[in-house]
Write a protein that binds this DNA or RNA. Structure first.
Length: 790
DNA sequence: GGGCACGGTTTTTTT
DNA sequence: AACCGTGCCC
């Protein structure tokens, strides 16, 4: 049997060699999920069951797509470019570029990232004179994206109250604005592509015939629209090979629908459901802890991980008095792991539920002189100087892109103030054209400064006509005045370097995507002998297609100019999270960011009620179960050593909070745990905020401008552990009122919510409640009629 | 147009 | 505590 299948366990083998029928692979953490997916593709091709061009494999992140391609080409001596491997958004972009006319988009349509979208929405609302306090732009953005992800256009959204009717109206106006500007946002990429396939039968038939093998990674993270898109591509007879783990579904908050797994099983009549339960990552105690914890969830598809490794070390638990002391302990343990156990720094991870928790740990690591790397944060293509340069590039390619226009019309400053821009926007609205096109209508001094800007862009467009992409980028950085501007800035050196890095990124892009190095940035470089992708089925003309008559894009150079490709790339792939990647350092990240990674030693910190599980999770339906899955993900990152810690008090948002240890401790098998501090039996202590709202802050000076105090003492590991246990004043109040933090309640006016804090007593007792629809409110318990839901 | 003061906000995140 | 947006003043 081929080398390919050697060393696969029976379940993996079965999954890899399944017939071409719908299949659902339930792949537990560390069970070789990616390997199965990749080997499956390689096997199909090696056996002659598939040619590369019939394969479509879809992932959520560019990183995952890249890894898949890299491992595939290592496995098979074939050109992976024939396959469609990429993210949902990347693949939709590719298809829309090829059929832009059928999709009703200009060839140079550009992609708005989340920040661009928000500024487009703000601009829209300003133009329509909409009160942005009554209708917060962020809420509208959420409303629009949510509607799109449900597949709903403005006239399909059903809105009853005035509030939602306004949102629908704004959604409609936003769509018109995007269409006029030739831009699409992230969910629009998917919805447009979905509609393209849904409405264009020949095209749909063509792609259905082509993609005979559709493979989906992280299927539990798909949203409704992504699943609908997959169904459309799969058609009647085609097989989807879906790999996922319902226990690792941690993105419900952004629309992921675990229910897609059950729907898939039912709708596709899945006969092949294979569970990968053999874990190759973690030692026994760690796995036992994970299994037991997750068994507290209901509605699971059902899966239990097993390992051949021994029990290994117990899971160590530490209770600290304060967050500072917790950090001190972590650093001490890290030292021991490095010095006594000889672990490399990259093999040690510190995980937390929310980003705000990293600072204390960072501080302690700095004092101890231990290098670390924090994941998350600003990414390369999100930096302001890079976005500015990209905006100029966008304007050259598409003068209608008002988002780009507004961004740089006065950056670097060229005497065009808010007043002039408002005038221009008014003119643009009046003539229903872009801001750039409205410039001639603005008279006076404002008109002439704007005219100068228009000339600048026109000049750039003309000068770069024959330039390659890297030359164009370099030229634009200079001619825009960005380079001079940052040169003159006191702290502009980093920004200048990033702009140089952007030129490098353009060079890399051109070579990696297979464009000729000298190809002009704004022409489509057809490969010799190839023909342009025909535009099919558009403009009332029905074209019957078969696979031979339609050459759809094998790769970017066939359909996209280098510039359009690069701009897509910049929007769709924001780049690495941190510059210091690859350096030998302790790894700090949120639990979400840790998904898919593994480390020899893992610290899960801040395991307190309110933090982990997070208090906000009490509001969402199934919120607690998602927190538990998150904890499951965290535990299963560890190979050999797992540490759990919590603190009695913690500084958060400028206030000290007193928390109780996480309920998750009670859901772990006690035999796997080793308490480093005495285990205090859970009493009826309730957490809450310290009761000093409105008093702790000086009204005459700004605390955030004050010099920070007490930052220089060396306290790594040996902070005086004398902080007394706080008096749990809230305990009695909670008992007295009959309410407690985290409780689900119902209010006749505000609807459903959850208690996030309690204070006062007797007739003054108040509860802070976070309502699903109305935000957070303080309610006097003697007045408000709160009903307990639980 | 830049700097400063003030007020509000703060789960998780990819594309 | 820290960050961001806004509004005011020169």
């Amino acid at each position: 049997m081929p080398e390919l299948l050697a060393n696969l366990n029976p379940e993996q083998y079965a999954a890899v060699t399944l017939p071409n029928e719908p299949a659902l692979i339930l792949a537990g953490a560390g069970s070789g999920k990616t390997r199965v997916l990749i080997t499956r593709i390689a096997w199909l091709i090696q056996q002659g069951l598939a040619s590369p061009s019939t394969v479509l494999a879809v992932t959520f992140t560019n990183k995952a797509a890249r890894e898949m391609m890299a491992r595939l080409s290592a496995l098979l001596p074939i050109d992976t470019r024939g396959m469609w491997i990429g993210t949902f958004h990347g693949l939709c972009n590719r298809m829309l570029r090829a059929h832009h006319r059928d999709a009703g988009l200009p060839a140079t349509f550009q992609i708005l990232d989340t920040a661009d979208q928000l500024s487009a929405i703000k601009r829209l609302m300003k133009g329509l004179n909409v009160d942005d306090e009554k209708y917060p732009p962020k809420n509208l953005q959420y409303f629009i994206n949510n509607a799109k992800e449900q597949g709903l256009r403005p006239d399909q959204v059903d809105a009853s109250d005035n509030f939602n009717l306004k949102f629908v109206e704004l959604y409609r106006a936003y769509e018109q604005q995007c269409q006029r500007e030739g831009v699409v946002d992230f969910p629009e990429l998917l919805l447009r592509c979905y509609e393209l396939l849904a409405h264009n039968a020949p095209l749909r038939a063509h792609y259905q015939a082509r993609f005979r093998h559709i493979l989906v990674d992280e299927f539990q993270d798909t949203n409704k629209l992504q699943y609908a898109w997959l169904k459309l591509l799969a058609g009647q007879s085609n097989a989807i090979f879906a790999v996922g783990d319902d226990d690792q579904s941690i993105y419900a908050f952004r629309g992921a629908n675990v229910g897609n797994m059950l729907d898939f099983e039912r709708e596709f009549n899945v006969r092949h459901l294979i569970k990968l339960e053999q874990n190759y990552r973690s030692h026994g105690h760690i796995l036992d802890a994970a299994n037991e914890l997750i068994s507290n969830n209901s509605r699971r598809l059902g899966k239990n991980l097993r390992t051949d490794a021994g029990h290994g070390e117990p899971v160590r638990v530490y209770e600290a008095a304060t967050d500072t002391q917790e950090a001190g302990w972590i650093v001490e343990e890290i030292r021991a792991l490095m010095n006594q156990s000889g672990l490399a720094r990259t093999e040690i991870a510190v995980l937390y539920r929310s980003n705000a928790q990293s600072r204390t740990i960072e501080h302690t690591l700095v004092n101890a002189g231990i290098p670390y790397r924090v994941y998350g944060g600003l990414r390369f293509f999100e930096r302001q100087e890079v976005k500015h340069a990209l905006a100029y590039l966008r304007l050259i390619d598409n003068p209608n892109d008002d988002t780009a226009f507004a961004r740089v019309v006065n950056f670097p400053t060229r005497g065009i103030g808010a007043r002039s821009i408002e005038q221009l926007a008014d003119a643009a609205r009046l003539y229903n054209c872009s801001m750039a096109a409205a410039i001639p209508y603005v008279t006076g001094k404002a008109g002439s400064s704007l005219g100068a800007f228009a000339n600048l862009i026109a000049k750039m467009r003309a000068e770069t006509e024959r330039m390659s992409l890297p030359e164009t980028v370099e030229y634009v950085v200079r001619a825009s005045g960005l380079a001079d501007f940052y040169q003159g800035e006191r702290e502009g050196q980093d920004r200048l370097e990033n702009l140089q890095e952007l030129v490098n990124a353009a060079t890399a892009f051109v070579s990696e995507e297979g464009y000729g190095l000298d190809t002009p940035a704004r022409s489509i470089p057809l490969a010799p002998g190839a023909t342009a992708a025909p535009e099919v089925g558009g403009q009332g003309e029905v074209v019957v297609l078969d696979a031979a008559s339609l050459t759809e894009p094998a790769q970017n150079p066939d359909t996209m100019t280098p510039l359009a490709g690069f701009l897509s790339h910049a929007s769709l792939e924001a780049g690495e999270n941190q510059a210091q990647a690859g350096q030998d350092a302790i790894q700090l990240m949120t639990v979400h960011a840790a998904k898919g990674l593994e480390f020899t030693a893992v610290f899960i910190t801040g395991l307190e009620e309110g933090l982990f599980p997070h208090e906000n999770s009490a509001i969402e339906a199934d919120g607690l179960e998602e927190e538990r899955r998150l904890m499951y993900v965290a535990i299963t990152r560890a190979k050999e050593r797992l540490y759990l810690s919590f603190a009695q008090s913690r500084m958060l948002h400028g206030q000290t909070r007193y928390n109780v240890r996480s309920r998750f401790f009670d859901e772990l098998p006690q035999a796997t745990l080793k308490w480093l501090t005495p285990k205090v039996e859970a009493g009826t202590r309730w957490g809450g905020r310290s009761d000093n709202a409105g008093w702790g802050r000086d009204w005459f000076s700004r605390p955030d401008r004050e010099a920070r105090h007490g930052g220089y003492g060396s306290y790594a590991g040996d902070a005086a552990v004398s902080a007394p246990l706080p008096a749990f004043a809230n305990e009695q109040r909670a008992a007295e009122t009959g309410f407690r933090v985290g409780q689900q309640v119902f209010h006749t006016k505000f609807g459903e919510g959850a208690i996030t804090a309690l204070e006062g007593s007797g007739p003054d007792a108040r509860a802070q409640v976070r309502f699903k629809r109305h935000g957070e409110k303080w309610l006097a318990l003697s007045v408000a009629k709160l009903q307990v839901v639980e």
